[in-house]
C-alpha cells in the first residue's frame, strides 16, 4: 500500500473519473454555462461582470491642428499674444526651448509637455517693447530727474540717507522670499551735525553699527515680516537715537574717568605721578589735592609736553611698536636717561 502511494504521480488535469463525479455533484444552474466551456478549463469567479460589459474605446482624433506658434508672423505684436503673466503654453510660444537635466550624452527635453518650463515663472509678458510701451504710458505721470543732482557728492549732500533692500526670484511658483523683508539704512555720521557730547552718546547707543574708517552708521532691521514695516522701524530707530543723543540726562553727570572714551592726560593719574616725581626731584613736599593736580601747569617741567603727547598717543591710538618707542624716547628725555644706542 505504501509503495503504491510513494510512486503515485498526480497529473495536473483531473481524470475523467473525477470529472464525472463533480458533474454529478454540480447544480443545474451552472450546467448550461458550462456547456460552452471546454471540459478542462478552470472556472473564474466574475463578481463585477467585467467580461459582459463592453470596454469603451477612447476616441483619438487623427486631425490635430498645427500649433498656433507655427502660424505666427515674425513681426506680430507679442504684447497682444501674451498680455499678462501666464503659465508656459508650448504651442503659443514660437521658440525652440529646451529645459531639464539629463544624464550625459542625452539631449535636454523639448518644450512640449515639459513640466520644468511650466513650473517656473516666465516673464514673456515683459519683453522690452512691452516695457517700453508701459513706460511711455507711465511717463505722463513722471517728472524729470533734478538737474542739480548730477554727481555723487550732490546726491550725498541732499539725500544722505540710503535705504538698501533686496528682492528675490528663483525657480519656484511663488515670488515670495523671507529674505526680502530685510531693510538696511546707511547714513554718514558727519551729516548729522552732532556736537561732542551728542556724538559720544550717539556712538554708545549705536554701538557696533558704526564703522570708523568709512564714518557710516548701518542700521539693519529684519524683525518684522513685511518690508514696509521694517522700513518704518529703521526710520524710527534713527530718529530715536538722534533725539536721545541730543538729550542730556541727570545721571550723565556721574560719568567717571573710567567711562571716558578717550584719554585726557590732564585728568589722569599719569599727570599726578609726573608732578609728584617732579616735586620729589626738587625735594619739595607734595601736598596737593586732586584738583590742584589737574590745574598744575606742566610747562615748568622740562620735556613734559613730549611726555604728555607720548602717553596720550599710547592710550588713545593703542599699543604698537611705534607708540611704545615714542613713549620710551619721551620718558628718557624727561628722566635724564641717555638715549638708546643702536648697535649694529
Amino acid at each position: 500500500m505504501s509503495i503504491i502511494i510513494k510512486h503515485w504521480r498526480s497529473t495536473g488535469l483531473p481524470s475523467n473519473f473525477n470529472l464525472r463525479i463533480w458533474r454529478l455533484h454540480s447544480t443545474n444552474a451552472d450546467v448550461a454555462a458550462k456547456k460552452g466551456e471546454e471540459e478542462e478549463e478552470f472556472r473564474v469567479l466574475d463578481i463585477l461582470k467585467k467580461r459582459d460589459r463592453v470596454q469603451r474605446r477612447v476616441a483619438r482624433r487623427n486631425d490635430v491642428q498645427p500649433d498656433r506658434a507655427e502660424r505666427m508672423a515674425p513681426d506680430q505684436n507679442w504684447g497682444n499674444v501674451w498680455p499678462g503673466p501666464k503659465t508656459f503654453h508650448p504651442s503659443s510660444v514660437p521658440l525652440p526651448l529646451h529645459q531639464g537635466y539629463v544624464p550625459k550624452g542625452q539631449a535636454p527635453p523639448g518644450k512640449k509637455a515639459n513640466a520644468e518650463l511650466m513650473k517656473i515663472p516666465n516673464f514673456l509678458h515683459l519683453t522690452p517693447p512691452v516695457i517700453k510701451a508701459q513706460c511711455e504710458a507711465i511717463k505722463q505721470f513722471c517728472t524729470e530727474w533734478p538737474k542739480q543732482l548730477n554727481s555723487e557728492e550732490a546726491i550725498e549732500t541732499h539725500y544722505p540717507v540710503e535705504i538698501i533692500s533686496s528682492d528675490y526670484c528663483h525657480a519656484s511658483p511663488t515670488i515670495r522670499n523671507p529674505l526680502s523683508r530685510i531693510v538696511t539704512l546707511r547714513v554718514k555720521l558727519s551729516t548729522l551735525n552732532l556736537d561732542k557730547h551728542s556724538r559720544d552718546k550717539f556712538l554708545r547707543l549705536v554701538g557696533d553699527r558704526y564703522d570708523e574708517q568709512t564714518d557710516l552708521v548701518t542700521i539693519t532691521a529684519d524683525r518684522c515680516p513685511v518690508k514696509k514695516q521694517n522700513l518704518e522701524y529703521v526710520d524710527y530707530l534713527l530718529t530715536a537715537c538722534y533725539h536721545e543723543s541730543l538729550n542730556v540726562e541727570e545721571w550723565e553727570k556721574d560719568k567717571t574717568e573710567d567711562d571716558m572714551e578717550y584719554y585726557d592726560w590732564h585728568k589722569n593719574a599719569s599727570k599726578k605721578s609726573l608732578v609728584q616725581w617732579f616735586l620729589r626731584t626738587n625735594n619739595e613736599v607734595c601736598d596737593l589735592n586732586d584738583d590742584d593736580y589737574v590745574q598744575y601747569d606742566v610747562s615748568q617741567i622740562p620735556n613734559a609736553e613730549g611726555y604728555e603727547k607720548a602717553v596720550s598717543s599710547l592710550m588713545n591710538d593703542g599699543e604698537s611698536e611705534e607708540t611704545v618707542n615714542n613713549y620710551a624716547i619721551a620718558v628718557r628725555k624727561l628722566l635724564g636717561v641717555p638715549e638708546k644706542k643702536i648697535v649694529t
Binding site: 599719569s270 605721578s273 609726573l274 602717553v311 620710551a328 628718557r332 628722566l335
Partner: peptide
C-alpha cells in the same frame, strides 16, 4: 601702568 608711570620701557 599708573603705578609705574613714568618708566623706561626696554625691548
Amino acid at each position: 601702568f599708573e603705578h609705574l608711570d613714568p618708566f623706561v620701557p626696554i625691548e
